[in-house]
Design a binder for these strands. Structure first.
Lengths: 337, 337
DNA sequence: GCAGTTCGTGACAGCGTTTTCATGCACCGT
DNA sequence: ACGGTGCATGAAAACGCTGTCACGAACTGC
């Protein structure tokens, strides 16, 4: 910066003012400085600047994985937003318990970011508390944390509406396939189950535990087993509501392999509206991770500028039922029976 | 840090030495300092440290998108590696041309990272040159840049082996489905085509332009059109080699919808070995983005520690043909004809 | 016992910015 | 013409750390 100052024949103060766009610089000096900076290929050091301003210009993001549609999409909408605000995006990937404890022990984001976005974690109270002491605004994304700014979709309502869609088609035996993931990472599992149960109750149907099965995402074998359990019930379901599209697709795969036509014999409904849902013409309950990412980014930027702002509210985003080709009325005999 | 020094009854120099693990600190003093640091919940400011050391502790990563299996997997293996080395991961997402020009104009990573990993970009000479002047080691990942450290899989060999697999099964009419993506982002498209052509030539077969079609990934309609073009040829192919698993799956989908059994009537071979390939029992040519990410991270760390090291070499990773259930010998009449 | 070494420690000068404060200058109204 | 205002600029003090250098103490070998 001293070089730029010398070349432009001004002091470093003026260079600093110019480069930050402060208005108290005369036009001709500004031009000279900008020219000099360009010629010298100069860029201010964020480190040095942050040392005195106390702001790092970084936004930290804590994610359980990057290998998922949700994270990819959310971050892809978050990143340009931060970039436009002149912020850097710092990613912490915490795939397993070891990394997790190490993260919360060392808290590498401390003093190294102006805000932290925590994606999809089921945090313990202790962990939440340690983040409270981080000295920066923390936004909880895709999860519900009492008393802290949180952003999430209304999973209960989504599952409620999805189940109603199946009920309205005439289904009475509706199964729910839960997704059990790596422990400690919340994928809104319970809320979706609750929505499903609410819909059934609302329709005056009993809750049958046999109709709720679980599997892991990406586990073909597990999905087959779960479907197998449903197919071997005394009174098998005519519709399957899977908590995640991937599992729904696996279910369709299994069913069709066994010559059970979807949706003629069994309807399948997913949740998420991943691209894969479109490929398979899968009826699903859509959520928008892009919206989540954007909202989270905007909230974070707000909180950085005004940490005491009244943003401790929860932002709840909507879901939408998207009927495609895998949901249909149940087969005749079932409807009449 | 002054607080810690005071509490431990030592100077800041000693605190700094202790916290950096230098050996010239007596055990009892070390214990006192560590205790004090813990009690005060102290963490050194990377910004301040980097100001004097000249190292930022950041590794910047330039990616075209995060919404892809490849990026997600590569970064997921890269991240823990950097974390273990005490480095932060800084992500720049450049989804479109506007962001791209803005990135290369402002080069936000300048002075803000110790190394840059550029993923999957087809850079212009001008862009490469501007990265050369960045003052930090730049590693090109999943692309081939002359004279700079690059890491990529041997796409030519992969496609060659994949095509040979089809040839060995008895296929003689083998189509290739190219993927045309967002312009300027290299997905090794050409190299895979070259490998395919090499295999045909090697087998003494002519190159038929009609057998090479193109589509966009994720575009069901486009995939259908591409397959349609192949099916309406005078002599349609008995095997389809798609440059990406997603497209291969779309092809299978289209074929089966038209009652053309895969692999009985038409074999389909993919490339990448994404999780989706496993679900669909898709035969494919596997590459390992996890390995790529790891190699890239290790190389970057090497170059950071010793920028002049002899690492200007290219690291070429292997591919593996994984036969699953979508490749089989061509139907009888074809083989005998 | 004395010079020479080694070892642990502290004082202090930077690192490259921002920011405060002071300064000089032009401009205003009277 | 003169003091007051406002504006563009510069000098210099932080910011929080690291690294160099110097210093004293505790050793070593003769």
């Amino acid at each position: 910066m001293a070089d730029v100052a010398e070349r432009a024949g001004v002091s470093t103060s003026t260079v600093s003012r110019t480069l930050r766009g402060l208005s108290t610089v005369s036009p001709e000096v500004r031009a000279r400085v900008e020219q000099a900076a360009r010629e010298l290929n100069f860029a201010v050091s964020r480190q040095a600047a942050s040392l005195v301003t106390g702001r790092t210009g970084n936004v930290a993001v804590l994610v359980p994985t990057l290998q998922s549609w949700f994270m990819g999409t959310a971050l892809s909408s978050l990143a340009p937003l931060l970039r436009a605000a002149g912020m850097e995006l710092n990613v912490y990937v915490i795939p397993d318990l070891a990394e997790r404890t190490s993260f919360f022990e060392r808290l590498p984001a401390r003093r190294n970011a102006d805000a932290l976005l925590v994606f999809c974690f089921d945090l313990t109270d202790e962990e939440t508390a340690s983040l409270d002491n981080l000295g920066m605004p923390v936004v909880y994304v895709s999860q519900h944390v009492e008393g802290r700014p949180s952003i999430y979709v209304d999973d209960v309502a989504g599952a409620l509406h999805g189940t109603r869609h199946l009920l309205n088609l005439g289904h009475r035996r509706i199964a729910f396939v839960q997704t059990i993931g790596a422990s400690g990472f919340s994928f809104s599992s319970n809320e979706r189950l609750i929505g499903y149960q609410q819909a059934l109750t609302e329709a005056g149907l009993p809750l049958d535990d046999d109709l709720v099965v679980a599997t892991e995402p990406g586990d073909k074998r597990g999905a087959a087993e779960a479907i197998g359990r449903l197919l071997s019930l005394r009174e098998p379901p005519t519709a399957v509501f899977a908590e995640q599209d991937e599992v729904a697709v696996a279910a369709i795969w299994t069913l069709r392999k066994t010559q059970i036509p979807v949706p003629e014999r069994v309807s399948v409904l997913g949740f998420d509206d991943q691209p894969i849902a479109d490929w398979f013409d899968l009826s699903t309950v859509a959520q928008s991770p892009a919206d989540i990412g954007r909202e989270a980014g905007e909230l974070a930027l707000c909180l950085i500028n005004d940490p005491d702002a009244d943003h401790k509210r929860h932002i709840v985003l909507p879901t939408h039922v998207i009927p495609r080709a895998t949901t249909a009325p149940p087969p005749q005999e079932e409807r009449e029976g």
